[in-house]
Amino acid sequence: MRKLNWPIWLGLLVSFFAFFSYPFIFVNWATTRDFPWANFILFAIAEVLIVIGVKRAFAPGRRVFSKILGAIGALISGLVLVGFILVVFVAARQLPPSTNAPQVGQKAPAFTLIDINNKQVSLSDLLSQPIPSDRAEMVSTARPSKGVLLIFYRGYW
């Protein structure tokens, strides 16, 4: 009797979805990004399915092959969960200490860099020039700059 042990396969599928939905989907909203609770809910669903699947695989009358498949499925889904925890909580914390980064109250170091049109832009330009409104043609709505938010990011290379 060949009966598909669907909870194992579905559990595996949900495990992979729980992993990849973080960088590709849930990272886009601060509430699901700052702590990946949505992904942990998905992992919990996956593990419930896996447990059901393993129970089925080891039920009396099942073939040895089904037991092996069940065990492998459980192992892979466990590894995906461990990998997720490593990626999100361990690897992501390997950041330089940045002890000499400017502190609150200190002067922000000056710089001159190039923008997307290859034009040179300095920090003092950014601080002194009025901020254009979203509709660039309405010059009269430009506002004086009160400050600049510098967002350093890893880049997409």
Partner: peptide, 19 residues
């Protein structure tokens, strides 16, 4: 080498006010 993620709010006088 790349930048680590970081944000600085700099006021009009060039002083870091939040980071």
């Amino acid at each position: 080498d790349i930048s680590r993620p970081a944000e600085f709010l700099v006021d009009a006088r060039g002083i870091v006010r939040w980071r």
